[in-house]
Simulated scan of single mutants.
Amino acid sequence: MGYDTHVRPETAADWANVAALTRTVFNTPDEALLNDALRQQTQDYIALVAEQHGNIVGHIMFSPVQLENAKQIKMMALAPMVVSKVLQQHGIGSALVRAGLETCFQHKVDAVVVLGHASYYPKFGFIPASNFAISCPWQVPDEVFMLLELTPDAMKNASGKVQYLPAFAQI
């Protein structure tokens, strides 16, 4: 990651710039609308931005999810994440993921799930959620729905389907 990139907590003043970046990178308003909906549906989210020279060049959000058979386990979903197209492959996404996971750990989150690239997220310790008998609410290939335990053995006796906030059903 470039020496001039800084990862920090998102503020409400960042929302318009985050939305513009997200719409540009995804070439659709869906993920930007998802960010807005998640902010409205819960206060228990974690959002970070990557900034270079005062410009937002990346964003990551974690929102609460529940396991249908183990509601006592504190879980978050990593989604969405975005990095400026011209700055991808420069470690900004990795810095956002690492900082986000550390923030989740500090907030005593037991596990994080992600629906994402099977070749990207394992470098952070994510493995297929099916290894824990955890399933995705959508039909997706097994290797793209992953889970990372932040609390050792938190998922030891857990199983079932992950329940996302309603915002995810809207995209």
Rank of each mutant, 00 (worst) to 15 (best):
Q163H: 12
W138P: 11
Y3G: 00
L34W: 06
K156L: 14
V83Y: 04
L150Y: 05
Q52G: 00
D142W: 07
M155W: 09
H6N: 05
G100S: 07
Y45E: 12
P152Q: 14
V113K: 02
G116C: 10
A16S: 08
K85W: 00
H59M: 12
A99T: 09
V7L: 04
Q66F: 13
G160W: 13
E102K: 08
S159G: 09
P9A: 10
H117F: 00
H59S: 15
G2Q: 05
A37Y: 10
P122T: 12
F105N: 10
V25S: 03
T22M: 03
A79Y: 10
I134H: 11
Q89P: 00
G160L: 12
R23G: 02
A129Y: 11
F105E: 10
Q89D: 03
A158F: 06
D44H: 15
N17Y: 04
A95G: 01
E143M: 06
R39Y: 14
F132M: 10
V112M: 05
K156R: 13
L38C: 15
V7E: 03
T24L: 04
P9F: 07
G160M: 13
A129Q: 13
P152A: 13
A158R: 08
G91L: 01
I92W: 00
E143D: 15
Q106T: 12
A79L: 08
E51V: 04
S63D: 11
L33E: 11
S159P: 04
Q89R: 10
E149T: 11
D30K: 04
Q88M: 02
T103H: 04
G58F: 05
H107F: 04
I127W: 03
D30W: 04
S135N: 14
K71E: 14
W15H: 07
E10Q: 08
Q106N: 12
K71N: 09
A19S: 07
L147S: 14
S119F: 02
E68S: 13
S159T: 09
H53V: 03
L115E: 05
D36Q: 13
D142K: 15
Q170W: 00
Q41N: 14
T151M: 07
F126V: 02
D4K: 00
E102Q: 14
S119P: 00
T28Y: 05
V49W: 06
R98N: 02
I127P: 02
T22E: 09
